[in-house]
Simulated scan of single mutants.
Amino acid sequence: MNKAEIFKGRTAVITGAGSGIGEGLARVAAAIGMNVVLADVVEDRIARLAVGIEAAGGSALPVATDVGDVAALERLADAAYGRYGEVGLLVNNAGIETIGFSWEISGDTWDRLLSINVRGVVHGCRIFARHMLESGKPGYIANVASIGALGMMPTQAPYMMSKHAVLSFTECLYLEMQLKKAPIHVSAVLPAQVATRIFEDAPTDRQSGFIERQREMMHAMISQSGLTPMEAGEAILDGIASGAFWVSTHPETTAQMARARSDYLANLANPALADQAEALLLAE
């Protein structure tokens, strides 16, 4: 069955829905007939998105949500179930990036990123999984990690480690649902290049020449060669609906990264700089 046959008439909760992949997912979900609950810390973005979805004949509920706040996630669940009675799909998509050397990134920035990128996913799953399991209906939980969950990168340590953590948590959650014989399918989403605002919005605590060049390089790469958020949303929802655990926007890139990671671990190799990162360092 295709995604419309599986999801039409059901309700999706999408965090980080105000822009980028989250917005793309919300628009695609609404287009196939889902009710969409839009969660984001930036209220005006999800308010505008909800108006657009409803103008096109869909149903959308914007809920201002800081996923780093457990009480806010509880309120999100209350709003979703209060309005629609059930949730068939949860996409924990909210996440932020930061760029800088690990020792130069402030404690507040480290804590904020890990709270959003890791705790937000964990508590989102914990809260919504309870409701899904109680309903006894088939449900879907998708956690957005990154292709970075299979790699490493200097000056992106907070982001990279958070995405490794999301992947590991999602693997464990998948096994827990198997152990319970629950009708909840769990997916790990590993997007590669998607044209989002993530580097525009990324906070930096120190704007050295190297850091600024890296930001510009990464922003240019996703802007020029990345999928649009709608294209990413289509690919991701197709993958979730197919029942896949591994969901990718760029399957060949994901397979290549997975093989490289496997070889690296099998050989217990030392971490190595990628060519682009090394070139930037030499120019510093």
Rank of each mutant, 00 (worst) to 15 (best):
A39Q: 02
A56T: 09
S59E: 09
A50K: 03
Y81S: 04
V51C: 07
L49K: 01
D44M: 11
L49C: 07
A72Q: 01
V70C: 09
P62W: 05
D44Q: 13
V36M: 05
L49M: 10
G58P: 02
G52F: 07
A47L: 11
R75I: 07
A30F: 08
I53D: 06
P62S: 08
E43S: 15
V63Y: 04
V63C: 01
P62I: 04
A47N: 11
V63H: 03
G57P: 01
L38Y: 01
V67Q: 01
V42T: 14
A72I: 04
A77C: 04
P62G: 05
A77S: 13
E54S: 11
M34V: 10
G68C: 09
V36H: 01
A60D: 04
M34S: 08
R48E: 14
V63M: 00
M34A: 07
E74N: 11
I46P: 00
L61M: 11
D66S: 13
A77Y: 03
R75K: 15
A80W: 07
A80H: 03
A64M: 15
V51S: 12
L49Q: 06
D66R: 13
I46N: 00
A55G: 13
I32Y: 05
E43H: 14
P62L: 05
I32V: 12
T65W: 00
A31T: 10
V41G: 01
G58E: 00
E74M: 08
G58I: 07
A60R: 01
D66V: 08
A64L: 14
A79I: 06
G68L: 07
E74R: 15
G52E: 12
A50V: 05
A55T: 14
A77H: 10
R48A: 15
L49I: 08
A64P: 11
I53T: 05
A31E: 13
D40H: 03
L61S: 04
V37P: 04
T65L: 00
I32Q: 04
A64Y: 10
L38K: 03
D44S: 15
A39Y: 05
D78H: 14
L76V: 07
R75D: 03
P62Q: 07
V42Y: 09
G57C: 10
G33A: 10
S59C: 12
V67E: 03
L38R: 06
D44P: 10
V70F: 13
A39T: 07
A64D: 02
A79T: 02
V67K: 00
A71F: 12
D66N: 15
A64N: 14
M34P: 06
V37K: 02
A39R: 05
A55R: 13
I32N: 00
V51H: 12
L49S: 01
L76I: 05
M34L: 11
A47V: 13
E43F: 12
A79D: 04
L73Q: 08
E43M: 12
I46H: 00
D44Y: 13
L73G: 03
L49H: 02
A31M: 08
G33S: 09
D66G: 08
V51P: 02
A80Y: 04
A56M: 08
A79V: 05
D78V: 14
V67T: 12
V67M: 05
I32T: 02
G68V: 08
A60V: 07
E54Y: 05
R48G: 13
A64V: 15
A31F: 10
R48I: 10
A56Y: 13
V42K: 13
V41S: 10
L38A: 00
V63T: 05
A72C: 09
G68D: 08
D40W: 06
